[in-house]
Amino acid sequence: MDGPAGSAPPPLVLYVGGLGRSGSTLLERLLGELPGCTPLGELVHMWRRALIDDEPCGCGDAFSACPFWTKVGELAFGGWHRLDADAVLDLKDEVDRTRRLPGLLRARPPAARAARLRAYTDLYRRLYLAAAEVSGADLLIDSSKHASLAACLRLDPGIRLRVLHVVRDPRAAAHAWGKSVRRPDARPSSPEQFMARRSPAATALHWCVQNLAFECLAASGRLPVPVLRIRYEDFAAAPADTLARVAAWVGYRGQPDLFEGKSRDSACLSSTHTVSGNPLRFTAGRVDVRPDAEWRHRLDPGDRVTVSALTFALRRYYGYGR
């Protein structure tokens, strides 16, 4: 990875952003197989799902029993018991929301929230530093996806941030968000037994907001963030090429070669310590990367028209025509 010889800079954080259900978890898992890389999952959800609900880590252990996260908590905060999760959630609700994006995308945050923003990003900076020390990695992958969190993190000079912006055809996203998928990591007492669902119209609007926010991050003047955009469809069609492109962009020295066979679309995943996210985070062993175009014959024609109309301009900008 990048970094001057003889120094120990903060770890580079690759933030995977975009609307969920766009193949980001699989991409994170594949990148996490590169030497020196450690995937952390969706840290934005850890405050409730890990600290309060004690949902399992990607390794299968409950969060409170996972040796990796126990060490991270000790290094970052002197132990997780010293962190008030409810207070963190209140802080998150105050500064890290989609409706706060107009203020967060400015070069300087609103003065009324500057102190609270610093307190919020300080939590992530401590987490990243501790996770890097425990894992020995110099590249951490945070697949939180939310544009609002990326906008918050970019304001902290102690966080070396790069954003991988993942885009998927909004009609495919609408189909994926309409599915009912049970969360295998949810505790019986958790109100979130199923992954969140959205209507096609709500998905289309959210798709526009999230992707436009990442475009603004890339175009930011005084506080620019390096942003690399990839399309899910390109990744699914040529996973080895996409992985090599991303690896080179973050400064990986070497030739990533995780794929097997002539088709170059099959790889082996090892167990990881990821918190929250798509059920794929529990997968270990061989995984095949295949394009998912189920929406083409499953999405209701009326919903397809609605999504196509609401996303027309941005959809065409990303190359999604008829």
Rank of each mutant, 00 (worst) to 15 (best):
D53K: 13
M1G: 12
L129T: 12
G36D: 02
G78D: 09
A174D: 02
A62K: 06
G136R: 06
D84N: 14
G136T: 08
F63Y: 15
L31P: 11
L104V: 12
F235N: 00
L258C: 05
A112G: 13
Q193L: 12
E294C: 10
L299H: 08
A107C: 05
H45R: 12
P4E: 09
E28M: 14
G251S: 03
S24G: 05
P191Y: 13
A201R: 06
V287M: 11
I141M: 07
D53E: 15
E33F: 08
R290F: 14
R171D: 04
F63E: 10
L269Q: 01
P291Q: 08
A176S: 14
L164I: 00
F194V: 10
L139S: 07
T306N: 07
A111I: 06
S266W: 11
C37S: 09
A247W: 12
R162Q: 11
A174H: 02
A219H: 10
D138C: 14
G60D: 02
L19T: 10
F63Q: 11
I52K: 01
R198S: 11
P10N: 02
A247V: 10
R322D: 09
A201D: 03
W47K: 03
S276N: 08
S144E: 07
H175P: 00
P301Y: 15
Y252H: 15
I52Q: 04
S190A: 05
Y128L: 03
R29Y: 03
V307L: 03
R197Q: 13
D169W: 01
A62M: 04
A137M: 10
R286E: 14
Y317K: 03
I230R: 02
L314K: 07
R125Y: 09
A173I: 13
A76R: 07
R315G: 15
W47V: 12
Q193M: 09
R113S: 14
Y128V: 06
A137H: 12
G58Q: 06
G6T: 05
